[in-house]
Amino acid sequence: MIISIASGKGGTGKTTIAASLALSVPGARILDCDVEEPNCHIFIKPEIKEKTSIYIPVPEIDKNKCDYCGKCKQVCMYNAIAVLNKTTLVFTELCHGCGACSYFCPQKAIKEVNKEIGFIEIGKKDNLSFIHGKLNIGQAMSPPLIKAVKKYINSAKVNIIDAPPGTSCPVVESVKGSDFCILVTEPTPFGLNDLILAVEVLRKLDIPFGVVINRSDLGDKKTDVYCENENIPILMRIPFRQEIARAYSKGQPIVEAFPEYKKDFQDLFNTIKNGKFS
């Protein structure tokens, strides 16, 4: 089973929920797909056992074979190649590694070479398997690295995916294929605005989802009204407590700092597993 945690708005508590949920389901695995800023490790504190570099193929031009016909730049959707009078320039930071340029080059002048975009680390904390990706600084393209993290999904286990914020490509790549997605929100105008965007994405992807309202006693009731009108189950509410914020700032997951929450997270998991939303 794959449960992803997304939000739309950043800072609503995705990692808070992901870490505590993973720690409440025996034998689960947590996959941190927020590769631009992974932070699950701060809460899980896994022992890292393996580290692997991840590459994308980028074009390398054989200057002796290139006749500057311009086919490569024509087929590049990402404007990563410029062909001028007697020069072909490659801008690898714009390259998505799709391979179209080398495929279409009539002179067979383009070879694909590996460019490192980041790495993944695999570890364990007791019975919990841990995988995350870290994108290299300056890299703009995270989906290939997210794909590499998701290769470690084990369909026999419960996989918890911590997605990045927002609603763009990295989020789509992270939540794609999930059996269920938890949208973590806060009852503020920003939280609701971005929740609505995230709901649109999940409906397009046809992924079942529900909402967790964090800091639920702050803000207003508009999120509740929205969820009711849209028939979206509210799975859990976590009230604002300074003690939770303090524990978070020390890297302590809710279920460790406040063991009474463990049952809530187990209930959350069971609700999702059984598909019974009241």
Binding site: L84, N85, F91
Partner: peptide, 28 residues
């Protein structure tokens, strides 16, 4: 989405201009 400077540079080259006058240019 990206690479506007690269595309525009090629356009200018195709128009056979020898000089560009502008406010700013980026690295690409």
């Amino acid at each position: 989405m990206g690479g506007a400077g690269i595309q525009s540079s090629q356009l200018v080259a195709e128009k056979q201009a020898k000089v560009v006058l502008t406010g700013n240019v980026g690295p690409n």
